[in-house]
Design a protein around this nucleic acid. Structure first.
Lengths: 347, 347
DNA sequence: TTGAAAGCGCTAACAT
DNA sequence: ATGTTAGCGCTTTCAA
């Protein structure tokens, strides 16, 4: 528009030197004398010269930029992961470009294509919901084929051979369910709106594993799987006859629905019902009663993911893929603290 | 790494035509016969050819990409704005690259430099906290100088001449305070952890304006300005002698602190204290009691911002700058619904 | 309808 | 220590 950007060529002409001298001087090459370097660097600074990134990247074939593709921006967990990614990447002088798939396959493909052709050196991503449902992973293999290494986290697939960082989801809900069992809960329901996601399925498995260790069989009525629009109704139904004494909620939607329904059914929280769930720490702390959560340590996951990617980027002879698990922690709050089930016959 | 990307040149050689023919064919130029076009396009598809974005952008000098720089990812409002931006931009075939300043001046400068030199055609941003405190806006004027139009939203500054989209903050808190006044509240406190931000100051002004219309002077004790670390304590102190019958909380931190402190001081909510505040709709709906909020319509703000930017991008003779206000809506919930102040002497 | 050639802004191997 | 040159992958005049 206004003033066209200063270029190497212009500086060279004005200063009466060659383009390459300017380039080398600005990159602090030892080939250039200090006098010329000083002169050129000073001039560049004064004229606010900035190298054109496109040209540099095109020439060098590397961008020192990582593309991060997240399914959703309205999600505390992903935000935490991004924070972890940024911290490590920035420390290593890598830049981050973030793009959101909004849980849509076509937007995910789009984002990858936008970034794959020159903009980034590699990807870190969690698979979009629609992609997981349709099981269409071609864009991932293409990226890898094109020499862009890829690290998946949280929402992963076995179909693609690449580095992966994930939560040990089975272990997490197993631990949570055990915790409720230790509280002498007899009828532990599990509620979820994410059963179409890989993580959703794994979390159910952990629940089942713990229940199976205690009881002869799983009571199907205690498995409440719904969608954002019908979960409120389904949980209200579950709580109708007040036999349920604990709920394990597998996602934030389900958590909020559980609170709402228990209020609606006039459960007295936390006395009548213990709840453990997945939610942001902020939300968990401010619910009434505050919620005992499974903290996934998003930042750690992000950091682990970048480290795997940087490793591949810097050392591309490395062809083996890692599958790195990050443990989940149970953070106890009022929704379970000191809970005693009314069905507890022992004490 | 593995298979180097297919290039125009290769296709040309294999198909025995010239580079320019391939280029034109792939861009569906009318100069090329249908037969050759078909042949080339088919071949390109089969070999999964994707034009190198860097090269195209370098050559054409335009990227059809907008850089969005947000102060924080852990913020519902910004997430909403981003959603609005994406919707409109995508519909117009523009891509979005998002970067986060984490409220830091240096990261903001960094992000702009990363993107300014070739990666994007223009910017949409909200100014980082540190930038607003230090009042260092040189990177913004530089971007504009370099021909990258810029649209600011929410966190803006008068110092820079550019398109702006903002909430009418004074009007919003004026309206909220009036609402509390109409509920016959006598001692309305305002609590904030964002007084160093432009929006924080404006919100206080709206409060003062409404109070001044009703009372002779502002009671300084009712102005509680703090930081994330001390706001809990300050509000607890404010509520010590139970004279306060309403709180206007200017940000989500302040909202949560107000709830915590009122619980600590054994206020019976919502009977003893009316609260209006800024918070995500999700958080507001799930607090106990649910919170009456000032909804800023982030998506609308995002949409307005892109429209202004696209306008400049497509029509660069347009040199006048717009300052577009978006109204805030009061969404009434339990924290004020049916509230009657104990100081109400009329009924 | 097709192709040759220049050039976007930069880097780097190879002279000088 | 400095300059010449080629070329990254593409688009786009201009000529054929």
């Amino acid at each position: 528009m206004l003033k066209p950007k200063t270029t190497l060529k212009e500086i060279a002409k004005i200063l009466g030197v060659s383009k390459s001298t300017v380039s080398k001087a600005l990159n602090n090459s030892h080939e250039i004398s200090d006098v010329t370097k000083d002169k050129i660097q000073k001039f560049a600074k004064e004229h606010n010269y900035k190298a054109n990134k496109l040209a540099v990247n095109l020439k060098t074939g590397t961008t020192k930029t990582i593309g991060v593709i997240l399914p959703s921006i309205q999600n505390f967990f992903f935000a935490q992961v991004l924070k972890g990614i940024e911290d490590v990447a920035t420390a290593d002088d890598y830049n981050i470009i973030t793009s959101f798939s909004n849980e849509s396959l076509s937007k995910e493909i789009n984002s990858m294509e936008l970034l794959a052709n020159g903009m980034v050196d590699g990807f870190i991503l969690a698979i979009a919901e629609e992609t997981q449902i349709k099981q269409n992973f071609d864009h991932f293999s293409e990226a890898i084929q094109d020499g862009k290494p890829l690290v998946m986290f949280d929402r992963i697939t076995d179909t693609i051979d690449c580095d992966k960082v994930c939560v040990n989801d089975i272990e997490a809900t197993y631990k949570a369910t055990k915790h409720l069992l230790n509280l002498k809960c007899k009828n532990i329901a599990v509620v979820s709106t994410i059963d179409h996601l890989s993580v959703g399925k794994l979390r159910i498995e952990g629940y089942k594993k713990a229940i199976n260790e205690m009881f002869a069989k799983i009571n199907k009525d205690l498995l409440v799987i719904g969608t954002t629009s019908n979960i409120d109704f389904k949980i209200a139904n579950l709580l109708k006859d007040k036999t349920v004494d604990a709920i394990l909620a597998l996602d934030e939607e389900a958590v909020l629905a559980a609170y709402k329904a228990s209020k609606f059914r006039e459960y007295n929280l936390p006395k009548d019902l213990a709840i453990i769930g997945y939610a942001s720490e902020k939300m968990a702390a401010n619910l009434t009663p505050s919620l005992t959560t499974l903290n996934q340590h998003g930042e750690l996951i992000g950091k682990a993911a970048v480290n795997l990617l940087l490793n591949k980027l810097k050392n591309n002879t490395n062809t083996s893929f890692e599958h790195k698990p990050i443990d989940t922690t149970l953070v106890e709050r009022d929704s379970t603290k000191g809970f005693v089930s009314k069905f507890n016959t022992s004490t």
